[in-house]
Computed example of a mutant assay.
Amino acid sequence: MRVLEIGTGTGYSTAVFCSRLGEENVTSIEYDQDVAARAQGNLARLGLLPTLVTGDGLRGHGEGAPYDRVIATCGVRTVPSAWIEQTRPGGIILATVGGWLGASGLARLTVHDDGTASGPLLSGQVGFMLARPHLPPPLGLLPDLTAGKEREARTGADALHDWTTRFVVQSAAPGAQRLTLTRAGRQEHVLIDVESGSWAALFGEDGRWTVRQDGGAALWDAVEEQLGRWHSAGAPALDEFTVSVTPDGQTYRW
């Protein structure tokens, strides 16, 4: 099998692939030049000469395509189309998908003849550092958190302590980042979508939660709707989720 590895790192897993498949079948991409140079030295000391590329792994490496397997040792918010295009039909992409709320899942996607890919999330709380282009933007100046409409929340911010719940919340508010701050003598949990300018601030008092929202979209309304659908389905675990990637985007089902 021909394998494309996204993220060479120290070169350890690259060496494992070479041992298993032969160096002529292994291509590995590393974004950081210094890291790539150290990995090349590590592999050379073992007498291994796979194809090593320094560049943006999200673009893959079309010169060596098609691949039977694409394996990413970095996290992504959405699976890049280049990985699908460079994997033969029936080939598999193994990548950690997640978001800016700190929850992720390991997706095992099979590439189809029509250029789409789909497959399950595997069990376990798996996390990798997000690829640099997928890191969140700076929050910048915070919005006026005293503005907006206030209501009683059906779901409190304490739900975000749970890994799977955070993953579901990310699918409802994929552009949101989370921070906690103290205002008016109480702790507030804030979700902010920098791109849209939307935000939601929640605080708990006497066992009840209040949310205040403003901006282009009601973030917490979308979160509660998505969580409602998930709970109605019995709150399935991540290994009951499936991921589909098409030209129209990436979707989750459970």
Results as ranks from 00 to 15, higher is better:
T10V: 08
F17I: 10
R20L: 15
L21S: 08
G22I: 08
G22C: 14
E23N: 02
V26C: 08
S28M: 04
Y31C: 02
Y31R: 06
D32P: 02
A36S: 06
G41Q: 13
N42Q: 13
N42E: 12
R45L: 14
G47Q: 07
L48E: 03
L48A: 04
P50V: 06
P50H: 13
P50I: 08
G55Y: 09
G57Q: 02
V70L: 14
A72L: 15
T73W: 14
R77P: 02
T78N: 12
V79S: 00
S81Q: 11
A82F: 11
T87M: 10
I92F: 07
L94K: 09
G98A: 10
G99I: 05
W100S: 04
G105E: 03
L106W: 08
R108M: 06
V111L: 05
S123L: 12
G124R: 05
Q125G: 14
V126M: 07
L130Y: 13
P133I: 12
L135P: 01
P136T: 05
L139P: 09
L142H: 05
L145A: 05
L145V: 12
A147W: 00
G148K: 02
K149P: 00
K149S: 11
R151G: 06
R151F: 11
E152C: 02
R154H: 05
D158N: 08
H161W: 15
R166Q: 02
R166W: 03
F167G: 01
Q170D: 12
P174F: 09
G175Q: 08
G175S: 12
L179M: 11
R183H: 14
A184G: 05
A184I: 05
G185S: 09
R186S: 10
E188H: 04
D193L: 05
G197I: 03
S198D: 02
A200H: 00
A200W: 01
A201R: 00
L202S: 00
R208L: 11
T210Q: 03
T210F: 03
Q213H: 06
G215R: 00
D221T: 04
E224A: 01
H231F: 13
S232T: 11
A233F: 07
A233V: 04
E240D: 07
V243T: 04
G249K: 04
R253I: 13
W254K: 00
